[in-house]
Simulated assay, not measured.
Amino acid sequence: MALSSMDFTPPATQNVKLKPSVYEKIIQIGASETPLLNKIGTSSVTSPLLHSWLTDTLADPKKNANLELSKFNGETKNTTQKTSNATQIFITEVSVTTALMKAKQYGGNEMEYQVGKKTKEHKRDIEFALFGLGRDSDVKVSVFKEHVQAQNGVSGEMAGLFHYIAKGQTSFSGGKRGNVLAFDEAKDWSGTPSLLTEDKLSQILQSIWDSGATPKDVFLGASLKPAINKLATRIFGNEKNLVGNVMSLETDFGTINFHLHRLLSPKYGLGDVLIAGDFEFMKHGLYIPTFIEDVPTDATAKAKRFYTQSTLEVRNADAFAIGVGLSSVEGGVLKLKK
Rank of each mutant, 00 (worst) to 15 (best):
G221F: 01
F183I: 03
Q206C: 02
N241V: 09
E280S: 10
I256T: 07
I288C: 04
V273G: 00
E250P: 03
S194I: 01
K283D: 02
V243C: 06
S207C: 12
R262F: 14
S207G: 11
N179T: 07
V180E: 10
D252H: 05
E239C: 00
E239A: 14
E250F: 09
G212V: 05
I256Y: 10
F183W: 06
F183V: 02
S194V: 02
P215I: 04
L201F: 03
N257A: 10
L181Y: 14
D217S: 10
P289T: 01
V273S: 00
V295M: 12
I292E: 13
A276Q: 02
G237M: 08
A186F: 10
S223N: 12
F183R: 04
L220C: 10
N257T: 08
P193A: 14
G237L: 11
G244S: 14
L196Q: 05
L264F: 15
D184H: 09
P266R: 06
L196R: 00
A276L: 04
I204C: 04
K187R: 11
S190P: 08
D188M: 09
A227K: 15
F258M: 04
T233K: 03
T251Y: 00
G271S: 13
E185M: 05
R262C: 06
F236R: 04
L224C: 10
S211D: 10
E239S: 13
D210T: 14
K187P: 05
P226D: 10
T297C: 04
N179H: 11
Y287H: 11
L231D: 01
Y287C: 02
D272C: 12
L201M: 12
I256K: 05
I288S: 13
Y287G: 01
L224Q: 09
S248G: 07
D298N: 07
P266L: 05
D278F: 00
Y268C: 00
S194D: 10
K225M: 14
H259T: 05
A232N: 10
V246P: 01
N238D: 14
A232D: 08
D294Y: 07
F291R: 13
V180R: 03
L205A: 07
D184L: 08
F279V: 02
S223R: 11
N257W: 01
I235S: 06
S202L: 01
L205H: 07
T290D: 10
A182K: 07
L220R: 05
S190K: 13
G269P: 06
G271H: 12
F236G: 15
N179A: 12
G221N: 02
V246W: 02
S223I: 08
L270I: 13
A227D: 09
P266G: 07
T297H: 05
V243Y: 03
K200T: 05
K200E: 00
F281N: 15
G271Q: 09
